[in-house]
């Protein structure tokens, strides 16, 4: 089993993801430079957080044209697992691999803090070790995490069970007060219809060790591993 962490110029959570996969979960992992065109041999791709291309123009808008993205799209079509975290989520949106867009936080400020999210769909490759309604403590760190999509898209996301996590409070209540950035329907993470691509604003790699204040995020990586292992077993 091998993970790949894609490195765009300006990515800055690449090493954090690498660390969790390699040192915490003890799985193989490579950095993949954004000019790479061959992605064979990987069981899961991670698009890490950061400021790819300085977030100039629009978050993720330039990274989406990096050479590696053609290969990423092909990888996605073949059903490969792709998790985009924070800026990685933004890149996936810009690339059209996930629906919707990110706009500035309603506070118009960068927000870095621990928040809570609730598992809405526990049947994805990313959440199969959780149960629906489970609450995770996990940090966010973004300027543009205010998820937006038109009414039709939101309806479809709900209907197809594509909303994977919602922002909530420590008791699991989803409300305006527990929504840190103004995201539509408190959306913190979505997947595509097929379920192989996840976009998530909070940072699971920052919540994978007790020493860092929470290890709730580790379950996302462990779910991926379980999913791959069960596929390998078949």
């Amino acid at each position: 089993m091998k993970f790949g962490v894609i490195v765009f110029p300006g990515s800055n959570c690449d090493y954090d993801c690498y660390w969790v996969v390699k040192r915490i979960l003890r799985k193989k992992v490579d950095f993949i430079w954004h000019k790479e065109r061959n992605l064979s041999g990987y069981d899961c791709l991670i698009l890490p957080g950061g400021f790819s291309y300085g977030d100039y123009l629009r978050t993720g808008a330039i990274a989406r044209f990096s050479p590696v993205m053609n290969a990423v799209e092909a990888y996605a079509r073949n059903g490969g697992l792709i998790i985009g975290i924070c800026n990685g989520f933004q890149v996936l949106l810009e690339a059209g691999l996930l629906p919707g867009a990110m706009v500035s936080n309603k506070s118009l400020q960068f927000i870095c803090k621990f928040i809570y999210i609730r598992v809405e769909n526990d049947a994805t490759p990313y959440t199969n070790l959780f149960h629906k309604g489970q609450i995770l403590k996990i940090p966010i760190a973004h300027n543009e995490g205010n998820y937006y999509a038109d009414v039709k898209t939101i309806q479809a996301l709900n209907k197809n069970n594509q909303i994977v996590f919602r922002y909530c409070d420590e008791k699991g209540t989803v409300s305006k007060a527990s929504n840190p950035n103004g995201a539509k329907e408190s959306i913190a993470a979505i997947c595509n219809k097929e379920g192989n691509i996840l976009g998530i604003m909070p940072h699971p790699e920052r919540a994978s060790e007790r020493l860092l204040g929470s290890k709730d995020g580790r379950g996302i990586f462990e779910s991926i591993i379980k999913w791959i292992e069960s596929k390998e077993a078949n």
């Binding site: 800055n12 959570c13 090493y15 954090d16 660390w19 969790v20 040192r23 957080g49 400020q109 960068f110 927000i111 870095c112 803090k113 940090p139 760190a141 940072h203 790699e205 920052r206 994978s208 060790e209 020493l211 860092l212 204040g213």
Partner: peptide, 27 residues
Amino acid sequence: VYRQYDHMVRTDTILLPGADSSLIRIK
């Protein structure tokens, strides 16, 4: 103020801002 700063990137921040001192682990 400090919520506008990314104080957790690099996943070494053991103590969040607000304590007497920060604490950065060395992997």
